[in-house]
C-alpha cells in the first residue's frame, strides 16, 4: 500500500546527505552515551536512559529545574544541565518531544521537597507529553509548575504572543530560571521570574539551507540556491518572508528592526545578546552579524551587558542564524550573571 495521492508530494530527492552516524535510529542514544563519557563529572543518567541529571545541581529545599525537548538542537537542552542552571533534561527523538516517562524520571530525581519547574518550548507535542508527566508526578506528590518559552517573535503576531514557539531565547530564559533556583528562591518566585524572563526575550532567525534527519538523510525543506527565509523555525517550519539572499548587514537589520520594535526599550536600557548558529553557519558569519547588532544597539541608545556568539540552539546542520535580545532589568541582570557549570556552558563568578 502506498499513499495514494503522489501529486501532493514533492519529488524524491535523489541525493542523501552525508552524516557521521551509525544507524539513524541509534543517533540520539549514541550521542547521549558520548556526552556522558565526556562530561561524567557533571552529568549522570537518572532512572531512564533519556533522563539526564546534574550531579551537583539538586539539593535539599531547592526548586528543581527540568528542561527538555527533541534532540538535534545541541547544546540545547542537555548541554545546559549543571549546577546553577538546569537540574535535569528530558531528551526526545530528533525534533520530537520526549514521551512522559523520561520527564517523570527527571522530576523524581531532582525533587527535593520544594517542587519542580518544567520549562520547554511551546510546541503542541511537548505540551501534551510534559503535561502527562506533570500529572503523573502530581500523583507521586511532586509539585510541578510549567513555564513555556515563546521567544520566537516571527512565529505569531504580538497580540497572539502566547502562541509563539520557543527557540534560541531558551538559553537566556533557562539561565535566568536556573539561577533563581540556585539562589534557593521559592517555587512561586522561580515561576514568576521565569515568566518575566520569557516575556522580555525576543528572537528572530534566518535560514539559508536545510538540515536533514539522521533517519532519512533527506533535506527537510527546499530553499533555492540564492534564497533565504526570515523567521523560519528551528525545525524547518516555514517563516514569514522568503526572498533573495542579502548581505549580512541587510539581514541583520531586517531582524533587528523587528526585535527592537517588539522590545520597546528606552535609551539607556541594557540588553544581553545571543548571536546563534543554526548549525553549519560559521563563527565568522556570526561575528559579522554581531558587529551590526552592536551598531544597531548603539544607534538605539541601548547598552550591551553581555554577548554570547556561537552554537547555542541548533537545528542539526541547518545553515542560518538567529539573534536574541533579552531586555534586562534589575531582576534579570543578576540572574544572567549568576555562575553556572554545565557540560557545554559555563559562567564564572
Amino acid at each position: 500500500m502506498a499513499l495514494n495521492d503522489a501529486t501532493t508530494l514533492p519529488k524524491e530527492t535523489p541525493m542523501k546527505t552525508k552524516k557521521i552516524i551509525n544507524r539513524g535510529e541509534d543517533a540520539v542514544d549514541e550521542m547521549l552515551d558520548g556526552i556522558l563519557l565526556a562530561h561524567g563529572a557533571i552529568l549522570a543518567r537518572a532512572d531512564h536512559p533519556r533522563a539526564i541529571v546534574a550531579r551537583h545541581g539538586p539539593r535539599e529545599g531547592k526548586v528543581g529545574l527540568m528542561i527538555g525537548g527533541g534532540s538535534g538542537h545541541e547544546p540545547t537542552f542537555v548541554g545546559f544541565v549543571g549546577k546553577g542552571l538546569a537540574d535535569a533534561a528530558a531528551i526526545g527523538n530528533v525534533f520530537a518531544s520526549p514521551p512522559p516517562d523520561p520527564a517523570l524520571a527527571c522530576a523524581t530525581a531532582i525533587d527535593r521537597g520544594a517542587g519542580v519547574l518544567f520549562m520547554y518550548g511551546n510546541y503542541a507535542g511537548d505540551v501534551m507529553n510534559f503535561d502527562m508527566a506533570a500529572e503523573m508526578a502530581a500523583m507521586d506528590d511532586i509539585e510541578v509548575r510549567t513555564v513555556l518559552t515563546t521567544d520566537d517573535i516571527a512565529s505569531a503576531p504580538r497580540d497572539e504572543a502566547a502562541k509563539r514557539r520557543g527557540v534560541a531565547g531558551n538559553f537566556f530564559i533557562f539561565k535566568a530560571a536556573g539561577a533563581a533556583c540556585d539562589r534557593m528562591l521559592s517555587l512561586d518566585e522561580v515561576e514568576r521570574l521565569a515568566r518575566h524572563a520569557n516575556a522580555r526575550t525576543y528572537t528572530m532567525g534566518v535560514a539559508l539551507a536545510p538540515c536533514s534527519l539522521p533517519h532519512t538523510r533527506v533535506p527537510n525543506f527546499e530553499l533555492g540556491p540564492d534564497e533565504m527565509e526570515i523567521g523560519m523555525g528551528i525545525h524547518g517550519e516555514p517563516g514569514i518572508e522568503r526572498g533573495p539572499l542579502q548581505s549580512a548587514d541587510q539581514i541583520t537589520d531586517a531582524m533587528m528592526d523587528r526585535i527592537l520594535d517588539e522590545m520597546q526599550a528606552a535609551p539607556g536600557d541594557r540588553v544581553a545578546v545571543l548571536v546563534n548558529s543554526l548549525g553549519s553557519t560559521p563563527l565568522m558569519e556570526l561575528y559579522i552579524m554581531n558587529r551590526r547588532v552592536q551598531a544597531r544597539l548603539s544607534g538605539a541608545g541601548l547598552e550591551t551587558h553581555a554577548t554570547w556568539v556561537g552554537n547555542y540552539c541548533t537545528s542539526l546542520e541547518m545553515a542560518g542564524a538567529s539573534i536574541t535580545l533579552m531586555h534586562l532589568d534589575d531582576e534579570l541582570t543578576p540572574l544572567i550573571d549568576h555562575p553556572c557549570e554545565c557540560a557545554m556552558f559555563r559562567v564564572v563568578a
Binding site: L3, T8, F95, L213, T216, V218, H235, G236, E237
Partner: peptide, 12 residues
Amino acid sequence: LCRLDGVIGDAD
C-alpha cells in the same frame, strides 16, 4: 510521510 510532513511541518 516524511516528505508530506516536510512541506508543512518538520518532516519527521
